[in-house]
Design a protein around this nucleic acid. Structure first.
Lengths: 127, 127
DNA sequence: TCAAACCCTCACACTTATGTGATGGTCAAG
DNA sequence: CTTGACCATCACATAAGTGTGAGGGTTTGA
């Protein structure tokens, strides 16, 4: 598929798809005419990237963790330098912190909404 | 406490504390000489703001959800317009999505690290 | 064959969260 | 009274993610 279709299927502008490529997050191959060519797997990959960006991770970090997330879990030990592993552990912990913070605050928002709704119900039944 | 102490206690630069104020996330009162003055509660509040920023929420949204998170759960129904409630529900759902995405990817990173460690152990015991 | 709809690269612009520095006021300790 | 450590505002700068448009090729269908 070409960039336009990938753009539609991921809800991501062409501009951004090119940007992700520039940042090394995806590597498209090229047709004879120079057009980028993507296969099915790019759809999920792009959605994953967007989810991580949305969750506050910078492309620099996403680039580092993406290779760990490939489906046929093939570990290239040559890639896994100690520094790399340390980085990944740090990122894993940071992600855990983010999850905790988001969960705490989401629950508080949800609780607030529930309370408002309870108040509404009471206000409606006891005027 | 003045801005310098709040900065130290929250690990947040003075510049950013002023920025958060400019964005309406915190409201400091002023001493006679114009210095900002903060009480204890600002420490947690600032840490909460940083956690949410870190988790990818923009100040615009943080400003909207912060009032729901106050401890003495006092609901100002006058504040709770239908649009406001709709916004909060949307944000709650977005936060839930972020949490899911982060959890998925964090688990994948953790799994990868575990696999590498298992491989190391095996490589070490069967050379 | 011509137009519409793609694609390419390049470049400038904007927003958001930040850093840094200039310029100057306040205050406490020597 | 001066020095150093605070504080204030203001302005300029930067990186990251993203939009937009110019200038120019390719493909496809009427």
């Amino acid at each position: 598929m070409r960039i336009g279709e990938l753009s539609k299927r991921t809800g991501t502008s062409r501009r951004l798809l090119r940007y992700y490529e520039e940042q090394g997050l995806i590597v498209a191959d090229r047709c004879a005419n120079g057009y980028r060519s993507y296969d099915e797997r790019f759809v999920d990959r792009v959605l994953q990237i967007r989810g991580l960006l949305e969750a506050g991770l910078p492309t620099r970090i996403i680039k580092q963790i993406l290779p760990c997330l490939d489906k046929p879990r093939v570990i290239h030990f040559s890639d896994a330098t100690p520094e790399m592993l340390a980085t990944l552990e740090r990122e894993r912990d940071r992600m855990t912190e983010r999850i905790a913070c988001l969960t705490r605050n989401r629950d508080a928002v949800a609780e607030y909404l529930d309370a408002v709704r309870a108040g509404d119900r009471q206000a409606a039944t006891t005027p």
